[in-house]
């Protein structure tokens, strides 16, 4: 029974993890995350890396779309920009990963600023359509600027290395990915403890009265675009050292949509939800694959259903959450918590 928990000072009340229970939960989670790579199979580690990279990108998107209300249909393009920038920094300039990945973040951040620049004049749905155009144009550039991007053959990159240690397996890359994910999730959560994050939410909820409260709309929106694409760029940089090759078809519109699905399913405007969403949206198709594989015993051509079923389940998941659980997994999570908070006396 966990009833009764009174904060002593305002500082306690401002902490990210406020209760002993939530701090204990965090400790358990961290311990599990540290043990995981030593016990998990290669396949699970591959999935974990993928989830981690996508979670970083989705955090960026949630900052822009969930918290600031600026819809982006081009987030995958920024991941791509970060990936190419990292790959180029690593191969042409010979930078080590701890410089090339941040370089990818910074270049994506600048690209985000450029795309965000018109956001003061172009609003709402029109802005969403503009980001869609950015997605199409960036993809085109990735494919056709062969001198820089290597065209459809792409760029190959050596594994990341540190003091002679090579991050040359999914198990080793795991530490890079989840170290950065932890850092960036902490940063994102911090953002919303301060005036910067409050301004983002205010712009989303009512931009005009936000302005009359002293918030510079232009600066705020550009800032959201830049932070968001920085996160995307870091995710792209990690992708480079995960996949070790960058090709244009890795960053299609459908990936942008997948990021949007993650923040919708997880919960718009929540950090925790973003993480839930990244896990859920990445793992559901894998679960479907497992089920279909099992079904081949009953019907040998079951595998041919996999591709269409993935489409249907993906779409139905988005529609279902929006119609029945518009606040996403984060809200389900807090309902469950509230239930156990008062357990065994649930109201």
């Amino acid at each position: 029974m966990l009833i009764g928990n009174f904060k002593e000072t305002y500082a306690d009340d401002e902490a990210l993890f406020r209760t002993p229970a939530s701090r204990a939960g965090l400790a358990v989670l961290l311990a599990a995350a540290l043990v995981f790579p030593f016990v998990a199979s290669d396949y699970l580690l591959y999935l974990a890396d993928l989830v981690g990279i996508f979670a970083i990108a989705a955090l960026g998107l949630n900052i822009l779309t969930g918290y600031t209300g600026q819809i982006s249909l081009g987030h995958a393009a920024f991941v791509g920009v970060g990936a190419y920038a990292t790959a180029i920094a690593a191969t042409r300039l010979g930078l080590p990963f701890w410089l090339s990945v941040p370089a990818g973040g910074l270049v994506a951040c600048l690209a985000g600023a450029v795309v965000g620049l018109p956001s003061l004049r172009i609003k709402g749905l029109y802005l969403a359509i503009a980001t869609l155009a950015a997605q199409v144009i960036f993809e085109w550039v990735f494919t056709n600027w062969t001198g820089v991007t290597g065209g459809i053959r792409g760029l190959n990159v050596e594994p990341a290395g540190l003091f002679g240690f090579a991050f040359d397996s999914d198990r080793r890359v795991y530490f890079l990915v989840f170290g950065l994910l932890a850092l960036l999730a902490y940063g994102a959560a911090n953002l919303f403890r301060t005036r910067v994050g409050r301004a983002f939410i205010a712009v989303r909820d009512r931009d005009i009265s936000a302005e009359l409260m002293g918030i510079d709309l232009f600066r705020t929106k550009i800032m959201a675009f830049m932070i968001s694409s920085f996160y995307a760029g870091i995710a792209g940089g990690l992708w480079v050292y995960f996949a070790r090759v960058v090709t244009p078809e890795s960053f299609p519109l459908s990936l942008s949509i997948q990021f949007l699905a993650m923040i919708i399913v997880g919960g718009l405007g929540t950090i925790k939800g973003t993480l839930f969403g990244a896990v859920f949206v990445t793992l559901v198709p894998e679960g479907l694959r497992a089920v279909t594989q099992a079904a081949t015993r009953l019907s040998p051509d079951a595998m041919s259903w996999l591709a269409p079923m993935k489409e249907i389940v993906f779409g139905a998941m988005i529609v279902g959450f929006l119609v029945f659980e518009p606040h996403g997994l984060a809200e389900i999570w807090s309902r469950v918590r509230r239930f156990f908070w008062l357990w065994p006396f649930p109201k």
Binding site: G187, R195, I201, A202, R204, M213, I215
Partner: peptide
């Protein structure tokens, strides 16, 4: 601002008098 708590709405009012920048915030 409907998406914020009462406390955050009030805090938002002080925006113009606060100084934390984006790096400080992160």
């Amino acid at each position: 601002f409907e998406g914020m708590t009462v406390l955050d709405n009030i805090k938002l009012g002080a925006h113009a008098h606060l100084e934390t920048g984006v790096f400080g915030a992160l």
